[in-house]
Structure formats: C-alpha cells, structure tokens
Simulated assay, not measured.
Amino acid sequence: MRKTETFGVPWESGYGYVQAVQHGDTIYLSGQLGHRGPDLHAPAPVDESGRITDFSAMGEQMRQAYANAAELLGRFGASLADVVEEVVYVLDIPAAFAVAGPVRKAAYGREDPQVASTILGTTGLAFPEQLVEIKFIARI
C-alpha cells in the first residue's frame, strides 16, 4: 500500500515532491517548516544581504512545523505519538537548544518524548527567513 499527501503549496510543484508518503506501516514526512498555507509563520528578519539578523522566532517556527507534521500524520490515521525518528535542521544551534526542549515536549505531549532525535546545524534552508525544518518517520 502506498499513499501520499500534500499541502498544495507552490514549492511542492516547483521542487517536485509530496509532503508525506505512506509505504506499508511506515509514514515518511518531508522536512516540515513553520508555514501556514503558502506563508512562512513568524519569518525571521533578514538584512540587505539576506542574512538572518534575529533568531528569536525559532520557537514559533518550530511549533508550527510540529503542528504541520501532526496535521499530515492525522491524514493517515496517525499522530506524533507514532513518530519513531525526527531530524531537526536549524540555522543556529544555541537558539534551537534554547527552545527545542519545551517545544518538543509540548508537541509530543510528554516530558520524555519517545522518539529518536537528531539536531543538525546547517548553513541554509529553503527560504531566507526560515530557521528550522524537521523531518519525521512514523510507524503505525
């Protein structure tokens, strides 16, 4: 069995991918970012050269990325409780560590999220104002 889901945002067709694929009992979510429809939620300010000048929106973007993942998983009859692995890509590790614990615990609804997690610092993400992207694998 194979099923896919999208959000219908422009970058899906522009880049050429789906947001989620279920293959058997496994659901693979493409990297989720903090967007609502085609708009980035809490975009980070950038200077004239396109560099981010303030990372304080990290938590807001992270919360929205988890909300988007939960929405996608729900379309498969799953939830964040079914996530077995996540990879968190961030532009600033200290800013991420300042908010990731409370945001993740709230998203998973427990003090000890039962998920394998990796956090990686990267030099760039898809959009100039984007601070975080989270990839998920869930088993149902």
Rank of each mutant, 00 (worst) to 15 (best):
G31V: 06
Q22V: 01
N68Y: 08
D112F: 13
K135R: 15
G59V: 00
Q32I: 10
G101M: 08
G77A: 10
D92V: 11
V9C: 06
G121Q: 12
K105I: 07
T123H: 14
G8H: 01
F127N: 03
Y66K: 05
Q22H: 00
T118W: 00
W11R: 04
S49A: 15
A98E: 04
G34M: 00
T4C: 06
L91K: 11
Y66H: 01
A42K: 11
D54M: 09
R2Q: 09
A69L: 07
P94E: 02
I52M: 04
G37C: 01
Q114F: 06
T123Q: 15
L125G: 02
D39T: 07
V87C: 10
G50M: 02
V103P: 03
A116Q: 03
S79V: 02
R2C: 06
V87I: 13
G8C: 06
K105H: 13
G14D: 09
V87R: 15
P102G: 07
R2Y: 01
H35V: 15
A100M: 14
I137M: 12
I52V: 15
E86A: 12
V115L: 05
P128S: 13
Y108D: 04
A65F: 01
T26F: 09
G109R: 10
P102I: 09
A20I: 04
G37R: 01
S49Y: 12
D92L: 09
E129I: 07
Q61A: 13
G34N: 08
F7Y: 15
R139T: 12
E48I: 00
F76G: 11
Q19V: 02
E48P: 05
G109E: 14
P10H: 10
G101P: 07
V87Q: 10
T122I: 13
A69R: 02
T6K: 13
E5P: 02
S13N: 09
K105T: 13
E12D: 07
G124R: 08
A69P: 00
F136A: 08
P113G: 02
V132Q: 04
A78N: 00
N68A: 00
G24V: 02
L72R: 05
S30C: 14
I93Q: 08
T123A: 15
V115H: 03
F97W: 07
A78F: 12
Y66N: 03
V99R: 06
G31F: 03
P45G: 11
V88H: 04
A42T: 08
A116E: 05
L72Y: 07
D39P: 05
A20H: 03
Y108E: 03
V18C: 13
V84W: 00
P38W: 08
F55E: 12
D112V: 09
H41Q: 14
R36K: 14
R75H: 12
D25W: 11
R51Q: 14
Q19F: 06
M62I: 00
G109D: 09
Q22K: 14
D47A: 12
Y15V: 15
R63F: 11
A44D: 03
F136C: 00
G77K: 11
V88R: 01
I119W: 02
V132I: 15
A138H: 07
